[in-house]
Design a protein around this nucleic acid. Structure first.
Length: 554
RNA sequence: GGGCCUGUGGCUUAGUCCGGAUAGAGCGCCGGGCUUCUAACCCGGAUGCCGGGGGUUCGAAUCCCUCCAGGCCCGCCA
């Protein structure tokens, strides 16, 4: 309803002013929508903006009044206020299953996220990638785009070679119940320690790298074995976070199927290509001064070369390619985009997120200084279970366990997604474990309250009206949901959905506090129940877009 | 040294791309509200030279310049 009404007002304003950009802005407390076109018109017409606004208001009124929209000039501002038809339409729309969804789109989207090196468990930095990527994927699907989510498995990297070396020389065995990715990290950390102590080992690592590139069967098997073990651990963590992938694409496939050699030979014919001791591209034409090295002097390829082949493949099978990458990948991301553009292939759209660090400094798998996502999940679940047990002691343990699991997921996902990706953060246990206000559980709670009312209400006649300021404020927010989804997708900013959902919960709670629903009578009871149903459905859809369970009871 | 990102009450942050009407929230602090639909809630109060300086504009947290501070990058790692 918000999108349609905004469109209507924009068209009316364009017709009346003859301006293309009619400067529509949020009306704040003054109005539902406002326009500041009177300012530029004042300059053009050499008349005071306030009198222009007044004149426009009187000319707009006849077209907008039939839609129940009031126009008023307040000084130079044009203020639009929505009336009963808007509220009724918004409530009705919000009752539909899947509310917020956009029109089905043609463009097929491939979205890559997480893609962490399989040399140790996912930590709280990696899961920022997972959660941003997954929320974005959910938003894309909600907005109507067929979307495939991929994990790019780096199974040829030096880090993996180090793990393979460690497996063969350290004789480590997993502890009882130890997750495979945690075991791999133990091997990786110790192997790195040995390499530091004995630089001769580096040559052995180089040998492994060369043999895997030459597709030596035993070496390929060894690499694949450690990667698969680590990935099993990742899948469990990603499952706990509800950030699933549709497909795991293995880097080495692009070596094996010849794609990488094909793209390298294609690039070698470019004027920007240079074959000296290494093969590299000079991208200074695109404003990138660093050499883009694609082949080492020993002839082996680097990650970037395989990544180019991967992106070429994605670009040919999808209409939009989106990557979620850490800020440390900004340079290599720009090089990738520039190179693909250069050869007329579809470059990826890249969403970068800044780093998560610990109070004592940055996280490092190699140094073993990180908070594993698994530990965060376990601790958050433990705290949530404590909390549920205090609040709902009467529930059977199994049910409390299930609620705690959903609450923990909500707390973790919301704590991460609420922050703009471009902001670097310091991980803080206190806010991660906070289940109040500006948190995922807070939004879940508003939804559970709505469900509780509806459960007790019994049957009622759907009635579409919002009388009080609290009801109207709630409907205004409900009406904006489809616009928020569309905006999050258009701007690749999934955190907009998080902000929206929290504001929706705020408004529902305020309404809940001031307006009795079950104790209201007649049409007012029906209208409020219908509004609660609309709010409940919108909260559920918003939570779903955030990958958070909409609990009916908690 | 060069490039990218960030700087908003004690702390965490929305708003910045697309300039408008008294800069929104949460935590913490002070004070209220549970015989009433789930208090993981609600209400009120104190707390802001929107990093500093300059500029553009009728109007700047938002645009431009500059300086300062923090993060990241500048590998034949990924």
């Amino acid at each position: 309803m918000f999108i349609e009404t905004t469109r209507l007002i924009r068209a009316a304003l364009q017709a009346v002013t003859g301006e293309e950009d009619v400067l529509i802005a949020d009306g704040g407390e003054h109005a539902d929508l406002a326009s500041t076109v009177a300012f530029p018109l004042a300059k053009k017409r050499r008349a005071p903006p306030a009198s222009i606004a007044a004149e426009l208001a009187s000319r707009l009124a006849p077209t907008l009044a039939p839609h129940g929209i009031a126009v008023e000039a307040t000084g130079p501002y044009l203020n639009f206020r929505f009336g009963p038809p808007y509220f009724a339409g918004a409530i009705r729309a919000a009752l539909a299953p899947g509310y917020g969804a956009g029109e089905p789109q043609e463009a097929r989207v491939v979205l890559e996220h997480t893609s962490a090196n399989p040399n140790g468990p996912l930590h709280v930095g990696h899961i920022r990638n997972s959660i941003i990527g997954d929320t974005l994927a959910r938003a894309f699907r909600k907005a109507g785009y067929p979307t495939e989510v991929q994990y790019y498995v780096n199974d040829m990297g030096r880090q993996i070679a180090i793990v393979v070396w460690g497996m063969e020389h350290l004789g480590f065995e997993p502890d009882a119940g130890e997750k495979p990715d945690h075991f791999i990290a133990r091997v990786y950390v110790e192997a790195n320690r040995r390499i530091e102590a004995d630089p001769a080992i580096t040559a052995e690592i180089d040998g492994l790298m060369q043999r895997v590139e030459a597709l030596d069967p035993a070496t390929v098997r060894a690499f694949r074995n450690v990667v698969a073990r680590c990935l099993d651990g990742f899948r469990e963590t990603l499952g706990d976070l509800a950030t699933p992938h549709d497909r795991f694409v293995w880097e080495s496939d692009f070596l094996r199927n010849g794609d990488m050699e094909r793209v390298l030979s294609r690039l070698s014919r470019l004027p920007v290509a240079h074959q000296e001791e290494v093969f590299y591209l000079d991208l200074s034409g695109a404003g990138i001064e660093n050499r883009y090295v694609l082949r080492r002097s020993d002839g082996t390829s680097v990650y970037a070369a395989r990544d180019l082949a991967y992106h070429l493949w994605k670009g040919r099978n999808f209409d939009r390619v989106i990557d979620v990458l850490g800020a440390d990948h900004k340079l290599i991301g720009a090089q990738l985009q520039a190179t693909l553009s250069l050869i007329g292939e579809l470059p990826p759209e890249i969403v970068h997120f800044e780093f998560v660090s610990l109070p004592e400094g940055s996280m490092s798998t190699r140094a073993g200084t990180f908070i594993a996502a698994d530990d965060l999940i376990a601790e958050t679940r433990r705290r949530a279970f404590e909390e549920v047990t205090v609040r709902r002691p009467e529930l059977p343990e199994e049910e409390r366990r299930a609620i705690a699991q959903s609450v923990a997921l909500a707390a973790i996902r919301y704590d991460i997604i609420r922050i703009s990706p471009e902001k670097s953060t310091v991980f803080d246990w206190k806010t991660a474990l906070d289940f109040e206000r500006q948190s995922g559980p807070y939004i879940q709670y508003a939804h559970a309250r709505a469900c509780s009312i509806l459960e007790k209400a019994g049957g009622f006649t759907e009635t579409f009206a919002a009388e009080s300021p609290y009801e109207q404020a709630l409907v205004r927010q409900i009406a904006k949901f489809p616009a928020v989804v569309a905006q999050a997708v258009a701007e690749l900013r999934p955190h907009l959905v998080a902000t929206y959902a929290r504001e929706l919960a705020d408004l529902f709670n305020t309404f809940y506090h001031y307006e009795p629903v079950l104790r209201a009578e007649g049409e007012m009871r029906d209208a409020r129940l219908t509004l609660v149903l609309a709010a409940q459905n919108t909260l559920r859809e918003a939570l779903g877009t955030l990958g958070i369970d909409a609990l009916r009871s908690m």
